[in-house]
């Protein structure tokens, strides 16, 4: 299977932030979610892939095109929408649609019309009269209607009201049904990522601290609740990311629960429950564990 994107040893330094030694690959047709706190490097990573910034070191390939050498060919097949990207306020959405249509031969006017209706946008309206949610949807329309092979989305649902968010997610879900299309998107909302992504990458402090398929993430991590005293060394055990005591109950967040449960029982602990964790809990546990698990 060909890769939609590959990054090898990529570094990008700014005065107050550095993306360090990023190795990442996304097979074509898959959806990867980027999870990280503000300043983790998600936007920088997406800008590097979209040709808006050049790496200081390392190599980047997008849809088989080395970047930046073949950025024009790569950009013809990329849709890039980022939270901080703006359109021309004085111009109408129709003007923007005509501009993008002239730049992308695969522009699908019928699909653009369908998205206009679905997003309830008026093509004749200047962008300065749009609300934040409408601007986000307009940018998404301009990206989706060009029928990109790779869609790069930086925080596509941030700041949207629940209705607009649902509309955007529905449109994205439809796009994601196209097996030939690859998507890399970042979001603060781990529920969106858990729902849409095939693979997940955790970024923290400019480094990739974990990257695997979504099912493996969710299968691996468990919340274990025990009653009674635990061995003092439990926090140092392999796979234990955190231990929190609350009265006589202790809650452990672990990766590879089977082995830890065995060790707990062998140490005489009363294991009351072993429950799945959601992605947000897994991310927090991974960050607190320094990504070493």
């Amino acid at each position: 299977m060909t890769a939609a994107l590959t990054l090898s040893g990529v570094c990008k330094r700014y005065p107050a932030f550095a993306l360090e030694d990023v190795d990442l690959a996304l097979p074509e047709g898959e959806i990867m979610g980027l999870v990280g706190v503000n300043g983790a490097g998600k936007s920088t990573l997406l800008r590097l892939l979209g040709g808006l910034a050049l790496p200081d070191r390392g190599t980047i390939e997008v849809l088989g095109h080395p970047m930046p050498a073949q950025q024009v060919q790569a950009k013809r097949e990329i849709g890039l929408a980022s939270e901080d990207m703006r359109l021309y306020g004085s111009q109408t959405l129709r003007w923007h649609m005509d501009l993008v249509r002239a730049a992308y031969p695969r522009w699908d006017e019928a699909y653009a019309g369908e998205l206009l209706r679905r997003f309830d946008l008026r093509a004749a309206q200047p962008l300065k009269a749009f609300s934040h949610g409408q601007r986000v949807k307009a940018l998404l329309l301009l990206n989706l209607a060009r029928r990109p092979r790779l869609l790069l989305l930086d925080e596509p649902t941030t700041g949207l009201d629940p209705v607009a968010r649902a509309e955007v997610l529905e449109a994205l879900s439809e796009v994601l049904r196209d097996a030939a299309r690859s998507v890399l998107f970042s979001s603060h909302d781990t529920h969106d990522i858990e729902r849409l992504a095939d693979r997940i990458t955790f970024l923290h402090g400019g480094r990739v601290i974990d990257a695997r398929d979504t099912a493996a993430f969710l299968d691996d991590w468990r919340r274990i609740v025990c009653h009674g005293a635990l061995p003092a060394s439990v926090g140092q055990w392999d796979g234990v990311a955190s231990v929190r005591a609350n009265g006589s109950l202790s809650e452990l967040r672990v990766r590879g629960a089977e082995a830890v449960v065995g060790l707990l029982r062998a140490a005489g602990a009363d294991v009351r429950s072993v429950d799945p964790m959601n992605l947000e809990e897994i991310f927090v546990a991974t960050v607190r564990g320094g990504g070493k698990h």
Partner: peptide, 17 residues
């Protein structure tokens, strides 16, 4: 200033273009 540069540079162009 109005951050439309990112939109323009995301089109199929190089810095030289």
């Amino acid at each position: 200033k109005e951050r439309t540069l990112g939109f323009v540079m995301s089109l199929p162009v190089t810095p030289l273009d």
